[in-house]
Design a protein around this nucleic acid. Sequence first.
DNA 1: TATGCGTGGAC
DNA 2: TGTCCAAGCAT
Length: 286
Amino acid sequence: MQQEIIDWYETNGRNLPWRQPGFTPWGALVSEFMLQQTPVARVIPRLEEWLERWPTPAALAAAPAGDAVRAWANLGYPRRALWLHACAVTIVRDYSGNVPNDVDALLALPGVGSYTARAVAVFAFGAHEPVVDTNIRRVIARHTLGQAEPGPPREKADMEAMRELLPEPTISPTFNIGVMELGALVCTARNPQCEACPIRATCAWRTAGYPEYEGAVKARQKKYEGSDRQVRGAILAVLRDAPSAVHRSAIDDAWPDAAGRGRALEGLLQDGLVVLEESDIFGLPS
DNA sequence: TATGCGTGGAC
DNA sequence: TGTCCAAGCAT
């Protein structure tokens, strides 16, 4: 199935910015951060702005962290902006401003986990490593395991399952990205396009007649409306949109409920996304 | 290992 | 509508 996926990808893969020739390892790192839980379509414009403004780790490291949080805009999970800034600082200090190509070195960077470390090593540097993301887990669950959904992540087992599928090192990066792309475009969570799938002939899930998933039910997503997360977002939006630090009263206006507002502000201060500049004056980090 | 962490589009 | 989902990570 390896060659079928590679052939399918060569024809059907999207021309995304991070797949263009000459895209830098720094661009790869930035794009992977932005793509953590944020859809491709929303990432693309922010990524292009970001790389124009900060084309190297050194450029970002020289800017205040708060500028990174502002440029992150509405991508969500703004701690990623803070972590990415911290990555830039570390890369300048420890790696002469060059994104490391080694999985362990990448893993040591803040906000870089198993997926992102291998994605950068493979996509930017051509490493022969398994990349495991939610798309790949779903493809393996269906094609190899014959079940509708992957179970809860088992990092070691998931990685071994993908490692066993890897073809020879010269083409394994293309295979990695091909499986991801297949999961993103064809073997999707909802309404998979099985008729268009290049590996349908060997798909265990198809052979079994598309049985429903029998495993443990996923924890239901908590309601966002009225949650602390929403309050955090509302407070941070005020700070992002303000040219400089704001008085507490501006934050009070961002959310009516004082208790939730207090929890959210405390959390933001704890995370370093907001700093107390002086009494009752709050700003983004410098 | 389960949970918290943003935001917005699709159905 | 509400619910699910989107190239995860840290704790």
